[in-house]
C-alpha cells in the first residue's frame, strides 16, 4: 500500500510544511504520493517532484480549482483514497478543513495535529491545549491524519519523481468561493520563521505594538506574533495569533514582549528552542517557560534591544 499526502499551495508557492509532511510519511516505509490540485499547478508539481521521498505527484488541474472548496477537494481525494492506507497533510487551516470531511466519507476516524508517529497506527498528540500528551491507537483500515510540521525535518530536494495527471470531478454545487483577503507582509511566514517576536496586551495600543515590535522584528528578520489579548484588543490582526486557537510556532528564538503566558498562548510557542520573556510582572506565567527572562518596562528595554542589535 501507499501513502497519499495532500499538498497545500496558494497558486504561486507551495506551503513549506509539505516537505515536513513528506518526512513524517516516511515512517510507514512505503511509497509516498503527493496530490496537488489547482488551476495551473504544473510548476508547483515539478517542485514537489524534486522533493526526496516522493514516489509520484498526482496533478488535478482544472480552472475550477483556482480556489477549491473543501467539498471539491473531498470529491477528488475520496475516490483516490481507495489506493492508499494512509492519507495525511501538514496541520493547517487548509488541511483541518478538508481532511475530516474526507475521513467521514471513508467512514474512518482522523487524528489531528499529530506530534509523533510511534508505529503504523499509533501516535502522540496534544490534548487540553497541549498540557497533556495522549498516545492514541487507530485501528481503522485507512489512517487519516494531520501532522505538526515543526516536529518533522523538511525533506530536501534533488529528486525527480514521476508526475501523473488525474481526472478532476466537476465542482459540487452548494458552496462557492467568493473572495479572500490576506494581510500582506514582507516578513517571513509566522509558521516558518526562525525568529518570532510576539507582543501582548501590555503594548497598550496598535500604534505602540507597531512602534515597539516591528523595529525589533526588522532587525532580527523575524515574523511578528501576538497573544489573543493583543489580537482581541485590535493591536494586531487575527492571523498573527499564536496559541491554541491561532497558529503553533517552534522557531529557534521566540521573544515574548508584554505577554503574560496564559496556557492557551503557551500551547502555541512552548516548543520554541529558546524563549525570551520581557515583562514588567515578575509573577507572569511566561517566566516559567522562558529560558531568559527580563523583568523590565518593555517600552524602555525593547528599543534598547533593537538599538543594540
Amino acid at each position: 500500500m501507499s501513502t497519499l499526502i495532500i499538498a497545500e499551495h496558494d497558486g504561486q508557492h507551495l506551503n513549506e510544511q509539505l516537505a515536513r509532511a513528506i518526512t513524517a510519511a516516511q515512517h510507514w516505509k512505503q511509497p509516498v504520493d503527493v496530490l496537488i490540485a489547482g488551476a495551473q499547478p504544473d510548476d508547483l508539481a515539478s517542485q514537489i517532484a524534486a522533493l526526496q521521498g516522493v514516489n509520484s505527484v498526482l496533478v488535478a488541474s482544472d480552472a475550477a480549482l483556482q480556489h477549491p472548496t473543501a467539498e471539491h477537494l473531498t470529491d477528488i481525494i475520496v475516490p483516490l483514497a481507495a489506493n492508499y492506507n494512509v492519507v495525511l497533510a501538514a496541520h493547517s487551516a487548509f488541511s483541518k478543513n478538508v481532511l475530516p470531511r474526507v475521513a467521514a466519507l471513508l467512514d474512518v476516524n482522523m487524528l489531528s495535529d499529530v506530534l509523533e508517529i510511534l508505529d503504523r497506527n499509533t501516535y502522540v498528540r496534544g490534548i487540553y491545549a497541549g498540557n497533556v500528551l495522549a498516545t492514541v491507537h487507530n485501528q481503522d483500515a485507512t489512517q487519516v491524519l494531520t501532522v505538526r510540521g515543526s516536529k518533522f525535518a523538511a525533506a530536501p530536494s534533488g529528486a525527480t519523481a514521476e508526475i501523473k495527471a488525474i481526472a478532476t470531478p466537476a465542482a459540487p454545487q452548494g458552496s462557492r468561493w467568493v473572495s479572500e483577503a490576506f494581510n500582506k507582509s514582507e516578513r517571513p511566514a509566522l509558521t516558518a520563521a526562525k525568529v518570532v517576536v510576539s507582543g501582548g496586551r501590555a503594548l497598550g495600543s496598535a500604534d505602540a505594538f507597531a512602534q515597539v515590535i516591528a523595529p525589533l522584528a526588522d532587525k532580527l528578520h523575524a515574523a511578528i506574533g501576538a497573544s489573543r489579548a493583543a489580537v482581541d484588543a485590535g493591536y494586531a490582526p487575527n492571523d498573527l495569533q499564536v496559541g491554541q486557537t491561532g497558529v503553533v510556532v517552534a522557531p529557534e528564538l521566540y521573544i515574548a514582549v508584554g505577554i503574560s503566558g496564559a496556557i492557551q498562548h503557551a500551547y502555541g510557542m512552548k516548543d520554541s528552542k529558546v524563549v525570551v520573556a520581557i515583562n514588567q510582572d515578575p509573577e507572569a506565567q511566561i517566566f516559567k517557560i522562558a529560558d531568559y527572562g527580563l523583568v523590565a518596562d518593555l517600552f524602555e528595554v525593547v528599543p534598547q534591544l533593537t538599538a543594540a542589535l
Binding site: H67, T69, S92, A93, F94, S175, R176, W177, V178, S179, E180, A181, F182, N183, A189, T191, N238, D239, V247
Partner: peptide, 10 residues
Amino acid sequence: EIDGGTQTLA
C-alpha cells in the same frame, strides 16, 4: 479565518 487572512464563502 484562514492562515494569513480571511476567505469568504457562499
